[in-house]
Write a protein that binds this DNA or RNA. Sequence first.
DNA 1: AACTTACTTTTGAAAGC
DNA 2: GCTTTAAAAAGTAAGTT
Lengths: 205, 186
Amino acid sequence: RLRKWQERIRTKDAGERNLQFALSEIDRMASALGVPRSVREVASVIYRRALKEDLIRGRSIEGVATSALYAACRKEGIPRSLEEISEVSRVERKEIGRTYRYISQELGLEMRPVDPKKYVPRFCSELELSEEVQTKANEIIEKTAEEGLLSGKSPTGYAAAAIYAASLLCNEKKTQREVADVAQVTEVTIRNRYQEQIEAMGIHG
Amino acid sequence: MTDPKDTINIENVVASTGIGQELDLQSVAMDLEGADYDPEQFPGLVYRTQNPKSAALIFRSGKIVCTGAKSTDDVHESLRIVFDKLRELQIQVNEDPEIVVQNIVTSADLGRNLNLNAIAIGLGLENIEYEPEQFPGLVYRLDEPEVVALLFGSGKLVITGGKKPKDAEHAVDKIVSRLEDLGLLE
DNA sequence: AACTTACTTTTGAAAGC
DNA sequence: GCTTTAAAAAGTAAGTT
């Protein structure tokens, strides 16, 4: 009986330590990404729910913590791409993606697809582009996405192409390489999305 | 006005069977030309047929998995070839081993572009998986028939998980009527 | 900029780690 | 869970020419 008590305490301590570790990891990654405290709180709630629903079994604590943060960023409307998230995590991109899909399904998070417009302010700020360019990029995304052009395309590449196009239209040109670097996509992707978007917008070549 | 059902094409059929005899894969690997066997990597021996094109995974237990065939007839033809090859090596093979189709992969075309964002909301976020950052297709699981559909922006789709060719037809019918009800087709 | 190759997703069985 | 097989869809990426 005394054994059982000790075991319970040991398990409780271990679980407590694991939770502590997960939350400190979320904090560390959130700081590295520069996201507000509200996002860390949402991420913590998601992690605790995953813990309660026993979703961590067979998965790494780090993986679930990272996925919770990825989901929280999206829920709060300030998404980070899997690429960006994986840069501050020990877990590789592919694992973060599949763990995110798993907890998202199991917890019924009902996540909506990421709106490319959500990337515009941050990317434009990094590129030191004006408000005018941001507005133009949002216009391009809004109008072309309505026509179904967004289907199946990655939100970062889509946003990057619109920003590139907007920078040209507003005479604040950034090169495809510069935009590609902040969005972490290739120039080829920007070119492909850019071509489709300007055609759909009825702009010249 | 082409019926999407008429665009259905079987792309792959997976089936399992067995010869009813245990095998010494090491010796089979030696005698069977073109056999790939690396037990450290995978317990099955890989043997590929050319006509019809397929890959057979042969196990120590005598059980065999055939994949890559484009029809159920091709599965039977491929396995007939495998059985005969084994008989040539003086291995006893049952008369007509039962062949069970485990999965049929099909492709089809709805004929018009799809707005996957609208479809994701329409079908209900709890019923689908759509993560374009990870994969361009929208994953839609049906209960009847029990298959999984991958829908793409082009209107093309993949149906997998079915055991009968009819499963894909029923799935396409259901998807089409569901999207029409939602006003998301055409 | 074009080409080629390769990886992402889903499905199923097999035997073993 | 992983390993291996094949196949489609379309997007993205990387390496060559």
